[in-house]
Nucleic acid binder design. Sequence first.
DNA 1: AACTATACCTGGAGTCTCCAGGTATAGGCG
DNA 2: CGCCTATACCTGGAGACTCCAGGTATAGTT
Lengths: 112, 112
Amino acid sequence: MLTRELAGASVRPLILSILSEGESYGYAILSRIEALSDGVLAWDDGTLYPVLHRMQNKGLLESSWRRADTGRRRKYYALTDKGRRALEREKQQWLQVDAMLAELWGLQPRLT
Amino acid sequence: MLTRELAGASVRPLILSILSEGESYGYAILSRIEALSDGVLAWDDGTLYPVLHRMQNKGLLESSWRRADTGRRRKYYALTDKGRRALEREKQQWLQVDAMLAELWGLQPRLT
DNA sequence: AACTATACCTGGAGTCTCCAGGTATAGGCG
DNA sequence: CGCCTATACCTGGAGACTCCAGGTATAGTT
């Protein structure tokens, strides 16, 4: 698994990025992350939900309870405008740090 | 500045990477990071020192007080073998998360 | 009727950044 | 010589966050 610090740094960008593709809900976000990482990352759901709540409190997300075709109740989350701006900021910050590490590691810089 | 989470995720890899180029000391590490980021990142030194202490406690670094040519006392830090292994792990983890974000953001994957 | 997978939530322990404040000294300047 | 600035290190407490253990509920399968 990841160090707690890297986990902390990546949850928010990952959630924002996944939701930028369209609304989703906790459980699905979890599986999406697991799939994206080829099974390497698997957050406990008890870690994810509080993060979603905090992000909603800060106005980055909005949520609505709906019943899926499967009959189950789900809490769907979608990005707000503020959330979209936050994603842009987080992305820039990530790329900033990534560029520094890439330089230290002798990797080629990313073309933007 | 960075979000506290990204700051947390990047301090350790940055320190380990900088020290992998040769020993250094707190104040110089700070300026190295500032230079690498083109002035964007500037950690408070009160944030860095406890991190160095913790890393030494975990056996990732070793330190020695020496007097520089300038006459000042400095605490030089160097990587231990354990530190070198930790760097390798952190690097893999970073690249893992980076690959996930790159995919979500539609960036080209990094060639290893 | 029992089980599994889906789907959500909370509380407390431990850990970490951040900030404010503190100590000490070399070198330059008046 | 006395003052200032840059260099160089340290600590304590506040606040924030992940992690884990535990809990609730229900659709579908056996």
